[in-house]
Design a protein around this nucleic acid. Sequence first.
DNA 1: GCCGTTTTCGGCCCGACTGTTTTCAGTCG
Length: 602
Amino acid sequence: MVRPGAACLKADQEFDLGIVAMAAGVTVHNEDVAAAFDEMGDLLAIQGQNPFRIRAYRRAAQVVRGLPRELAEMAGTEAYDALPGIGVDLAGKIGELIRTGNLRALLNLRRQVPGGLRELLDLPGLGPARVRALRQELGIKSCDDLRRALTAGRLQRVRGFGAVLQKRLRTALTERATRASPERLPLSAAAQYAEPLKAFLAGVAGVVRVEIAGSYRRGRETVGDLDVLISARRGSSPFEALKSYRDLRALTSQGTTKASGVLRNRLQVDFRVVQPESFGAALQYFTGSRDHNIRMRRRAQERGFKLSEYGLFRDSARVAGRTEEEVFAALGLPWIEPELREDRGEIEAAERHALPHLIKRSDLQGDLHVHTDASDGLEPLDKMMQAARRSGLRYFAVTDHAKYLGIVHGLDAERLARQIDAIDALNAAQNEIVVLKGAEVDILKDGSLALEDSVLARLDVVVIAIHSHFDLSEAMQTRRILRALERPFVSILAHPSARLIGERIGCAFDFEQVLAAAHARRCALEINSQPMRLDLDDVHIKAARDRGVLLSIASDAHSGAQFDFLDGGVRQARRGWAARQDVINTRPVRELRTLLRAARLN
DNA sequence: GCCGTTTTCGGCCCGACTGTTTTCAGTCG
C-alpha cells in the first residue's frame, strides 16, 4: 500500500471513532494508527504523564509511519510486538485498532482532555505545562478561548505568562487564523534559498566552514526548516553579518552561539556557531534524525561516554568531535551516510559492516523516461539529445505519451512509427549518445494498455504509468496494476504511486503484490525525479530493493534543463538504501539492453 | 511504555535560549 496520508479515522473529532470507521467499512491504515498514537502522546503530555511513556507513543507513531507494509496485512500482535519500540501493550493497541477501528484508551483520554487543547500545543511557546496551566487557571480549552482571554487581559493572572509571551501568542493566533503558517517545502525549493545562504555565510570574515544539516542534509523530500552550522574564529560575528542578508526577513532570536530567523519564503532557519574541535559532533547532532541521535547517544552512554553537539566525552575529556568520522569511529561504527540516518536499521547495518554503497549521480549512464515536443515536452528530439549529452548521459530513452483520451498530443501507432524511424536515423547519424526507442503508455482503468502489443514490440523501452482513476479501491487498483504488468512488453512501472507531493496522495494498492509481480517478470520500478513526484518514496524504494526488484532513476524530463532533476532522484534512491547495482540505468547500454530483453515475456 | 553482555527494575539524549524570575521552568530542536 502506497497511500501515505489517508485519514480514515476522524482522529480529531469527539465521537466514537470505532462506530465511524466500522460504519464506513474502511480499512485501518498505518497512518490512522500513527495518528492515534500521536494523539495519545499529546493528550498524555497535556495531562502531565510520564514523559517516557509519552515518548513511547510518539516513537511508535514514527515506526508505524516508516513501515513499507500495512499493519493490517501483517500477522497480528506477535508481528507488531517484534517491531522496534513496540512492546506487548502497544502491539495490543495496534491489534485493537486494526480489528475494531477503535482504541478504548484514546476514547477514555478524550473524555478527560478536551480536544481543543491539542491545537494549543501547536502555538509557539506553548508546551504541555503551559497548556495545562491555562486550563487549570482560566478554564481555557481551545484557541478561541485563548484569544478571548488574551483580549480580556486575563492571562496576566497566570504565572509564567508575561507580556512578551502574550504578544507572541496573539501574533501566532492571528497567523493561524489567516493560514500564514509555513508548511514544509520541497527539497529542491528549499535548496534555492539554502545554497545562496550557505555561500553568503561562507564569505563572512572569520567563518571557517558552513554546513546545512538537518533534514536538508539527509535529503528528505520536504524540508520544514534549515539547520545551519557555522564554524568561526573567535571574535567573528556571523550573526551580525546575517542582518544584512537580503533573503533573511528577520532574526527572531539571537544568543552568543545560537540564533533563529525567518527567510523571505517563510522558511525557518536555525543557526549555530561551534568551535572547530566540535564541528563534527555538531554536524552529526544537527543532521539527526532525532531517532537516529537518540540511538547514538544511548550507544555512547552504554560505552561510558556522553555524546552532545560539543563532542564525545569520557568524563570531561573530549575523545572525539572534530569530524563526524571520528565520532562514529569512537563509537565503533563506520561513518553513516546522512540519507540513511533515520533509525531504519542503519546503525545495526553499520555494526555488521553491511551498509550499502549508496548510488551516486555519476553512476548513472542513462535516463529511461524522457519526453519531447512530440507529446507534452517542450523541446524537439535533437535538442533533448544535446541536453542529455551535456548532462553526461551515454543513452536515453524517448518515452513520449501514447495517445489516449485526455493526454494531448499523445502519439498514436502511426506517429510513434514515424518517431521510431527518426530515432533510427539519429542513431545512424551520430555515435556520441544512444537514443532508445520507447513510450510512456497509460494503464487504462481496467489494466489494459493504451497501445497494442504489436506496436510496443518495436520499442526498446516500454514505460507504463497511471494517469487517471487514482481513487479506485485498493483491490481494484491492485488488480489494475497487476493486469498491466502481465502485458508482454512492459519494462518499467513509472511513478508507481502517482502521488504529487503536497497535492495528491498516492493511489492505494497492495505494494507487496506489485513487488512480487514486478520481480517475477523483471520489470523495474521507477524512481521519478520530478521534484513534486519523487515517486517511489524512500520507504518503498527500500522495500523494493530488499525484495530484489530493480529500479530505474528517471528524470521524466519535459525540457533539456530537466535532466538536472536526476540529482534529486539519486538523492531519493540513496534514502532508500539503493546501491549502483540496484539501478538499471547505471548499466552500460549493451548490458541494459540485455536486462530489457529479459523483461519481455514473449 | 519500552527494553536488557551492568537486565525483569530502573533507567530512558542533551543543551541553548527565552521569559520570567531573582535562580529557573518551559520550550525547542
